[in-house]
Computed example of a mutant assay.
Amino acid sequence: MKLHINNETSRLKAVVLGTAESVGGIPNISEAYDPKSIEHIKMGTYPKEEDMIREVESVADVLKKHDVEVYRPKLIKNYNQIFTRDIAFVIEDKFIMANILPDREQEIEAISHVINQIPSENVIELPENAHIEGGDVMPFGDYILVGTYTKEDYKSFITARTNKEAVQALKDLFPQKKVVPFNLKKSNVEPRDNALHLDCCFQPVGKDKAIIYKGGFLDEKEYEWLVKLFGKENMFEITRDEMYNMFSNVFSISEDVVISERNFKRLNNWLRDNNIAVEEVPYAEIAKQEGLLRCSTLPLIRE
């Protein structure tokens, strides 16, 4: 398999889509990795497996409709395998395995049938001290945009997933690229004030547009840098509640087609106004775990 990913929006040819089968029921609060899941566990509104299966398979149907080759993880019984973006990501022709929470290492083994098709020299394991998840990494032409958290209290946040050592590792791996880090706001207790990954508060769409939430960035100058890069007129600014509902976590099949949650009316209308077709799917149950469409997909090949 010849991998090729240079951005978020070129025509998608192959992707790994997560699965919601046999997710293992409602976790204990001690087993939850983010404040939104904890909130729904406490309220008794944590999503049911059958609803999540229906939602993920609706995405599989859209991808197949657009002639995308869809790979799925091997099933691990009683285990959540929805969010494939967490476990790895592709830049250029390199498949980079994320140094993720230790409990989740078996998720990588579950996609070994995909990894085995990639030349071994292009499968990269980062140094052990470089913590990273794919939701924080966005290839954008000459840039690699990276969500991170660099304060001294990094270890106290279950929601801090990508550290400065990982940013440096990407700089070493891709010296020809400009690796740009963004410090994200973190909270273990309030999901409305927690940007779990960069794609929870920012994502490019179309040819030159982007979705962004200012409140997700700790440093306003870093937010302003992105606004300048795209142009204010090309930015769709989302609110705190829209960030909580994961408005920036849509997924592009191409510059002209985006998969989005069907309830994102304001965003979906804006996309259509900008000549981007919207494939609406139900994904509100999966959103209760602080992840949405980009989190569930691991693109392998784009044109």
Rank of each mutant, 00 (worst) to 15 (best):
E261M: 09
E242L: 03
K228L: 07
F182T: 13
N234A: 06
C200E: 13
K171R: 09
T162G: 02
A160Y: 04
I212Y: 14
V258W: 11
F251P: 10
D153L: 10
V205A: 00
W225M: 03
K164L: 07
P191T: 12
F157G: 01
N263A: 14
V227Y: 00
K221R: 15
S156D: 08
K155I: 05
A210R: 07
T159R: 01
R262W: 01
N245G: 13
T159C: 05
N268M: 14
R161H: 10
R266T: 13
D153V: 10
E261S: 14
Y154G: 02
F264W: 12
K221P: 08
A169R: 02
G215H: 04
N188Y: 05
E224H: 01
V167A: 03
K209W: 07
G215F: 04
N263W: 06
K221V: 14
K265L: 14
S187P: 11
Q176G: 04
E261W: 04
S248R: 09
F157E: 03
N249M: 11
N188H: 07
C200D: 15
S156H: 02
V227L: 05
P191E: 07
R161T: 12
D208C: 00
P191A: 11
D208E: 06
Q176E: 11
E222R: 08
E242Q: 15
